[in-house]
Write a protein that binds this DNA or RNA. Structure first.
Lengths: 228, 228
DNA sequence: GTGTCGTCGATTGTTGACAATCGATCACCA
DNA sequence: TGGTGATCGATTGTCAACAATCGACGACAC
C-alpha cells in the first residue's frame, strides 16, 4: 500500500502562499512594490485572515518585509545580496558534493542527466522562464540527493532568491544569460571521479553566475524606491 | 543623532512569537507536545488572530509543525537532525572563518574575548541555562563578524535547534556537558594566524559536540510520541 | 517663508463569532 | 469477532467588523 502521496490538504492559506510566492519569484510582481492586504484579499476572493497568514509565511521566507501599520513590500534586489548568495552557494554546493560523492548511484546519475536534458530542451525551445526553473531544478537535484534535510531547506531559500534575480534579469534584458553548453562541464565532472576538479568547477561556475547577475544590477538605473 | 535604537513596535504578534519561541527553545514546553490555539490565546490574553500569525512564523522557523484541522506540535528531536545540524555547522563555521580571517580586527578580538569570559563566568557560577545562551553567543560572534547577512540568517536557525537540544539534554541530565576549558583552544586559534589549525579545531569541536548530543539522545528511552 | 500642529484617508492590527474538518468512540450488523 | 458507518467533542480554518497607527496634507502662527 505504497506509492500514494497524501492527498493535498487545501487551506486557503497554503494556496495563497504558493500563488503569491510564484507571482513574486517569477517577477510578475515587481521587487520593491507594495502589497495591500485588502486588495489582495479581494483578488483572491478570501478574507484578510488567511491572506495575512500567507504573508507572514512569505516574510519568514525572506521575500516580503513589513512595517507595522504601514505596509508590506516585496524585497528589493541589492548587489550585496547577490554576492552573499553566490558565495554561500558555492560553499553549500561543495558541501553537498562532499556529502554525496561516495554515495552517488544509478538513481542520482539518471536524475541529473534527466534534468540536464530538460534544461537544454527549454533553452533550445527558447523558453526563458522555463529555463530558469530548469536550471534551478538541475542544481536542486544535487541537494536533494544528499538526503540532508537541513541543507535542502537552506537551498530552497537560496533558490527563491536566485529565481527572483534571474527573473528580474530576464525581464530587463529579454534574454537569459546561460548558454546551451553552460552546464556540460558541471555535469561531466559531477558524474566523474575527480572531486577536486568538481570543487574547481563549482567555484568557477559560481563566479561566472555572480558576475553575470551583478553586471545586470550595476547596469540598471537605480529605481526611485521608498528607501533613503 | 545616533545611538538610539528604533523604538520597538509592539504588536501582539511579535511579542507572542518571541515569548513562545523562548518557551520552546528553553525547554519550558516539551518537544513533541501539542499547542492548542484557544488555550494559548487565553494565556496570552489575546484573540486567536495574532496568535495564529505568531505560530505561522514559528512554523516557518522550523520549531513548530502543524497538521490542518488537527493540531500544532513542537518539533521533536531526532538523531538524524543532530547529525545534520553539526555537519552543516562545521561547514558554515569554517566558511565564516574563511570569510573573516583577513579582516579580523580589534573589534572582533575584543568581542570574542568578552563573550568567552561571559561563558566561563556562567560556567563558574553553575548557571547552566545561562551557559547555554553564552555558548551560543560566543559562537554567534563569529557569524556576526562576517557581516554576511545570509550566513547569519542561517546560523540563527541552527542556533535555535542547538538551544533546543542542549536545553533538553540539560533537563534530562541536570548537568551541562561543556567543561570550563572547552573553548580555550578554539579561542586561541580563532585569534591566531593558522587558518588550517582553526579548521581542524572546528572539525574536532563539532565532532565532540555531535557525539555528546547524540549520546544523550540514544540514551533516553523513546517517548510515547504521536508518531508511528 | 518656516516650522508646528491637527485632521484625514489609507493601511495594518485585533477581535469574537461561525464554519469545516479530524479522530475517537460506539452502536450496529454480518 | 471483525468491520462498517454514524455521532460527537475538540481543534483549526475563515470571516466581517472594529480599533490603532502611520504618513501626507494643509491651516495656522510667528
Amino acid at each position: 500500500m505504497d506509492g500514494f502521496s497524501r492527498v493535498a490538504k487545501h487551506t486557503f492559506r497554503s494556496r495563497i502562499a504558493d500563488t503569491l510566492r510564484d507571482a513574486i519569484l517569477s517577477g510578475n510582481i515587481e521587487p520593491g512594490s507594495q502589497l495591500v492586504e485588502t486588495a489582495l484579499a479581494e483578488q483572491f476572493g478570501v478574507s484578510r485572515g488567511p491572506l495575512r497568514e500567507a504573508i507572514r509565511q512569505l516574510i519568514e521566507e525572506g521575500i516580503l518585509e513589513t512595517v507595522p501599520y504601514t505596509g508590506t513590500y516585496v524585497i528589493d534586489i541589492t548587489v550585496k545580496d547577490v554576492d552573499e548568495i553566490y558565495s554561500i552557494r558555492r560553499n553549500l554546493e561543495t558541501f553537498a558534493f562532499e556529502q554525496l560523492w561516495d554515495r552517488r548511484g544509478e538513481g542520482f546519475r539518471n536524475e541529473l542527466l534527466r534534468r540536464h536534458e530538460a534544461l537544454t530542451a527549454t533553452i533550445d525551445a527558447g523558453d526563458d522562464k522555463a529555463s530558469i526553473l530548469a536550471e534551478l531544478s538541475f542544481h536542486g537535484a544535487v541537494y536533494e540527493a544528499t538526503g540532508h534535510s537541513f541543507l535542502l531547506r537552506i537551498w530552497q531559500s537560496l533558490r527563491g532568491r536566485l529565481q527572483l534575480y534571474w527573473a528580474a534579469h530576464h525581464r530587463a534584458h529579454g534574454i537569459r544569460g546561460p548558454r546551451r553548453d553552460g552546464h556540460d562541464a558541471y555535469l561531466r565532472l559531477a558524474l566523474g571521479d575527480d572531486l577536486a576538479a568538481m570543487r574547481g568547477e563549482i567555484e568557477s561556475h559560481m563566479r561566472r553566475g555572480a558576475e553575470q547577475t551583478k553586471a545586470f544590477l550595476d547596469g540598471r538605473e537605480p529605481r526611485p524606491g521608498r528607501r533613503a
